[in-house]
Design a protein around this nucleic acid. Sequence first.
DNA 1: GTCAACGTTTTTGTATACAAGAATATGAAT
DNA 2: ATTCATATTCTTGTATACAAAAACGTTGAC
Lengths: 218, 218
Amino acid sequence: MERKRADIIADELEGLIFDGTFADGERLDEVQLSERFAVSRTPIREALQRLAQSGLVEQLPRRGVFVRQPGPIELIEMFEVMAELEATSARFAASRISDDALKELNQTNARCNAAVEAQDTDGYYRENEQFHALLYRQSGNRFLEQECLRLQRRLQPFRRVQLRLRGRLRQSMAEHERIVAALENGDGDTAANEIRAHVAVQGEKFHHLMSSLKPAAE
Amino acid sequence: MERKRADIIADELEGLIFDGTFADGERLDEVQLSERFAVSRTPIREALQRLAQSGLVEQLPRRGVFVRQPGPIELIEMFEVMAELEATSARFAASRISDDALKELNQTNARCNAAVEAQDTDGYYRENEQFHALLYRQSGNRFLEQECLRLQRRLQPFRRVQLRLRGRLRQSMAEHERIVAALENGDGDTAANEIRAHVAVQGEKFHHLMSSLKPAAE
DNA sequence: GTCAACGTTTTTGTATACAAGAATATGAAT
DNA sequence: ATTCATATTCTTGTATACAAAAACGTTGAC
């Protein structure tokens, strides 16, 4: 494996942006960062480029790179696209999914449920992610799977906020079960609609997301 | 504006990969490229990183970067996702599009038609791209628009091949008109289905795409 | 006091130098 | 002759040095 320093730094910077250490609009100074990570500017610059490509920072030529947190509108847009990508995954999966995969989905859901009962939010979060990842894979389209994972990763810090809603965990579980049921029936359209509603930001979720925006994340 | 050398080099390398100058699996040597472009390795490396992020090359740590042309399966998958993204755009647009935008779509279609009559393939290609870009914009979701443009750009060299099919231009035009008609009726599902069929690789398009794959592009 | 022009400083972009890991070649032993 | 060990070369990854552009501050004119 042996990833290079630039990759490690990119991941760490990503985390620092997500957890709000670097605020929106803040300029990321190359020399400061190089001191912080005790490396030269070269790997820092490579890491920053990676972040720029994934949209976490904006790179103004000859001006520097600036943290770019998505605003409310962009966030809603991203969730809307996420919902559609997942709906597409589900629709494809309905006709392509294997019995083994269905069993795995059910098992994941069971673990999810156990986490809910145990009030284990982190556990729920992990199994929930696994559930969605399984679905992407079962779309039978590896490219779609990659795109879904990419956007999911990007939305991760904001998604977590939504689970804090009162009663959201149980409701989310019920939605998972309806999705699996639709897949078992081979009903792609229903599965797509269910997961679209599951992912979409609407109703009280919307207000909750908005009110969490100023601190940007976590 | 004043983009930096690395950006220009990235674009040029992209072109060289698209037009087959660099074959699939070929290793891109940093020093060779730096001589070719008469710059140092630094901007070359930055350009290569950009290409790696967009998926045109693969970067093996401590081994180098290698051209990575999509295989038949990946290509089909990418077109499938493109079709779904465009279908989503159309569905959104059906309820969000403005009268002005509808007029613009019709005008673009007219120019498209003129290009068909004049046997102006390049002209058709340009106007066709414009038609789709307008649609993305009218989805009312800027993030979706960006994702569509990104994937369209990636598929560009392969899309062009499809227009070579006998009679494809006229058929494509007819499809455009059915799409606009559905949008005028505010019928999102029909618009989505029409554009999905318009973009999807199916029937003779499939065979044509496959047979064009060995030279990879153009 | 405000604004503009000039010079200084800071910071990015590029080139070059150096370090370390991977590929390759060389040679010895079986 | 083949194979394994070792040395050499090549290439990538990182550090440093340099160039150019932008930001900043100072000074002077109005």
